[in-house]
Design a protein around this nucleic acid. Structure first.
Lengths: 167, 167
DNA sequence: ATTTATTCAGACAAAATACTCTTAATACAA
DNA sequence: TTGTATTAAGAGTATTTTGTCTGAATAAAT
């Protein structure tokens, strides 16, 4: 996979926070529950994001984490780099150290152009945009067995008359 | 990294074979030596390629492995899929199972277009092309501390009068 | 003050990946 | 027909990644 699992979790959590109506502290418990991720593991992952100043955290009752900047000012690339490091956008396809114009691998030209497209995509996708999309009907952030998003819940209520019972 | 190490080794070996003047059986010893890869590990990796009918193998003295089809008829994607599986070209950016038009993640649209570019690149890059490039001066297939490729050796001899001594 | 809810830090365990080694099977050569 | 060079198969080890757990630090509420 392109992104490590840690990285995916971090991205999902960041998008989840950006999808909320207001940027308030949310407990990692809540995020982990909504996204079906191990709480303790997510805690570790999000520490990377707070250390990178993408999140701010607050301890104690009603504490949690929140975006440290406007969602429109945090890119997908910011989150990815904070967790997996910036190498994704620099690395050789074959992982050869020093692969570059002076000393390229046979796929260098092709790969650098792919890579910069990828980087461009990730730097131009903001949490704001991703958060908006996450709120749309039939869009989901995590595994199918995770709780529905607000839009889906609302739709389910409206169409059925009463919400489906969950065990 | 996008590709597993096993996969990179397999790709490197395949390109190495395609870079040779004729498609003859080459011992895995030789390949592993030239590419600075553990012999036993490479053996395992290449077994995937022979099972996938991309390589043919022959045991006993003067045995080895060789491309099972013309280098122009084997794509980078063929090799990648034989080792890492075809999921690379199908997977969701976040690894969500079932992510698709009906049930997308927030990055679905952007990612599918990137992914298909990647797939197109890998299916259109043939071992023939990559092998040719590997034979060019200052192009290398593996780590810098691996032996030089034929073109580099030749150039070194011609420019210096005698080859550089290596410890 | 004490309890409670939270993040932070780090030890530990499990799983996946990468790598090593040994033995078997095969085929050539003397 | 015995030895030798090679791939095949699979057991075993090491490293990295993923995940779990426990305790400390912090801050609010009672």
């Amino acid at each position: 996979m392109l992104l490590s699992k840690s990285c995916v979790y971090g991205v999902q959590a960041a998008i989840y926070m950006a999808s909320l109506p207001r940027n308030e502290y949310v407990s990692i418990q809540e995020i982990a529950g909504k996204l079906n991720i191990s709480f303790h593991f997510l805690t570790k992952v999000l520490q990377n994001l707070t250390q990178a100043k993408l999140l701010m955290s607050y301890r104690g009752p009603n504490g949690g984490v929140a975006l440290a900047r406007q969602a429109s000012d945090i890119s997908l690339a910011d989150v990815i780099e904070a967790i997996d490091g910036g190498d994704i956008f620099k690395e050789c396809l074959f992982g050869l150290p020093g692969c570059g114009v002076a000393d390229p691998c046979p796929a260098h030209e092709n790969w650098t152009s792919m890579r910069s497209r990828l980087q461009h995509l990730c730097t131009s996708l903001t949490l704001e945009e991703l958060g908006k999309r996450a709120n749309q009907l039939n869009v989901r952030l995590a595994n199918a067995d995770a709780p529905m998003n607000p839009a889906m819940l609302l739709a389910a209520i409206n169409s059925k008359g009463k919400p489906v019972e969950t065990k």
